[in-house]
Structure formats: C-alpha cells, structure tokens
C-alpha cells in the first residue's frame, strides 16, 4: 500500500470532520474490502480514518425493528440470538458473508457504504425496506442505493446505524460465485404488511435492485409457483467467466423460489 496518515478518532463528529475536510480521506470500517484494495495499491488515500473507536456497535431489537450499529460485525449479527429470533433471514445472510475471519472484522456499515454489487447486505436492506441513519440524517433503502459502488452518502457522511423493520416472513437465498463466494445471485424475499418485496444482488450491472414483477406476483400468491411463468430478462445483467447474463437471469428465478420456500 501507499503511505497515508492514520487517524483513530473517538467521536463521530471528529471522524466526520476529518473525512469532510479532505476529498482523498477514506474511512476504515472492518477493512475486509478496503485493506486488500490498499494492499494492491488500487487506492491512494491521504488519510485513513479508523472508525473502530466511535462506539458504533450494538444491536437493539424492538417488536417492530432491528437496529444495528454501523460497526457491528457480520459475525455478531450472525450469532445474535435476538436477531435470529426477530429476523432470522438477516442472521442467516450475515453468516453467509465471506469466511469466519471476514465475518469477525467486516461490518454492516462498511458493507452498505461500499455497495459492492455482489454484497449480501444491500439485498436485505432493500427488500426489508430498512433505513440508514447517518451522522446527519436518515435515508430510506430505496434512496440509499444509487448504482454499483454508489450510494446517497455525501463526502464525509458516516453511517451510524441501520434499521430493519421486522417482516412477517423473510428469507435470503444466495448462489455463491464459485471462486470468490460473493453473491453471484442473491435474493432476499420479505413479506411485509404492505406486500412482498424482492431484492436481487450480485446479478445486475446496476447493483442491488427490486424485482417488481416477482413482487407483484408474490404479493398476490406467496408461493414458489407464483413466479414460475415469469421470465427474468438478461438485459443489464452481469456476464463473466463464471456466469453469463442468461445463466444469472435463470438463477434469479431459482433462488427466488428457494427464498420463498424457505420463508
């Protein structure tokens, strides 16, 4: 990696100030994406602001919501008895991210802020219709994701917590990329009071998105067969050595059925 200044502030305001003052400053959450990027010299920040001492960890569960501090690790979410009880699909999803080492460093805030098109958490946030709370505002899931690696976050804006409404039912079905084990296609299905929401990650060039045709069909009839005649077009889907756009389109249908079945 290139040389950079390293800061480890102890309150959010100081971190926001450091990040806001310098366009080339970068926040370090769990570092499970960022540190490999630094090591490969793909990024040259002036300052790295370590968020680990901001007190942004912890899980709060109410009858209607699960709120997770931005610096809470995937491992903590995966193992939380409270999350398992309230939104088991969310704990399941967290347990499918990376490997043990990654899960015990990587954080929910880091994952959402990066918005990797193959990350798992964006699917949960979008399908459940959760909200992202930052140092300055609250952003709905629909507004938060703005294309791959792009979010509504402003320069220097920090996620402090993420809130998920407790659904009637939800499930996450992930088809892993055989090599990286990121989501090649990940489908989060949530049955909420207002209807069914289906979010797809890993598949689209635009990053996570909602499959509205599936949502409409499943809102009418929440069963795997409800979507059997809906063909997902391959336009705009990713294509690489592991999966063509057509294969991904097919997998979206398969994984959605499996998620519905698992609900």
């Amino acid at each position: 990696m290139y040389d950079f200044k390293y800061e480890k502030p102890t309150d959010v305001a100081a971190a926001v100030a450091s990040l806001g003052a310098d366009m080339e400053a970068k926040a370090l959450a769990g570092g499970q994406t960022f540190i490999p990027v630094l090591k490969q010299r793909l990024n040259k920040p002036t300052v790295v602001v370590d968020l680990s001492k901001l007190g942004l960890t912890g899980i709060t569960v109410t009858p209607t919501s699960v709120t997770i501090g931005a610096m809470t690790t995937h491992g903590t979410v995966a193992e939380s008895e409270e999350v398992k009880k309230a939104i088991p699909a969310l704990a399941h999803l967290a347990g499918l991210i990376g490997d043990n080492a990654v899960r015990h460093r990587g954080t929910i805030g880091g994952s959402l802020a990066n918005n990797d098109p193959s990350a798992c958490y964006p699917a949960a946030l979008l399908a459940l219709g959760g909200t992202v709370t930052t140092d300055r505002r609250t952003i709905t899931a629909g507004d938060f994701f703005q294309g791959m690696f792009t979010t509504a976050l402003e320069q220097g804006e920090l996620i402090t917590s993420v809130s998920f409404p407790v659904p009637e039912k939800a499930a996450y079905a992930k088809f892993r990329n055989p090599a990286s084990r990121y989501a090649m296609v990940g489908v989060f299905v949530a049955k909420l009071a207002g209807g069914v929401r289906v979010a797809i990650t890993g598949a689209s060039q635009g990053g996570v998105y909602r499959h509205t045709q599936f949502e409409q069909a499943l809102s009418k009839n929440f069963a795997p067969d409800a979507i059997k005649d809906i063909t997902t077009p391959s336009d705009g889907l990713n294509s690489d050595i592991h999966a063509s756009a057509e294969y991904r389109a097919h997998l979206i249908g398969v994984m959605t059925k499996r998620a519905v079945l698992a609900c």
């Binding site: 090599a179 990286s180 050595i241 592991h242």
Partner: peptide
Amino acid sequence: VSASFMDYTM
C-alpha cells in the same frame, strides 16, 4: 482473466 482467488476457483 483468472489471476486471483476472486476468479480462480480453488
């Protein structure tokens, strides 16, 4: 194309 463990499946 498969020059890392991200694309080379072990």
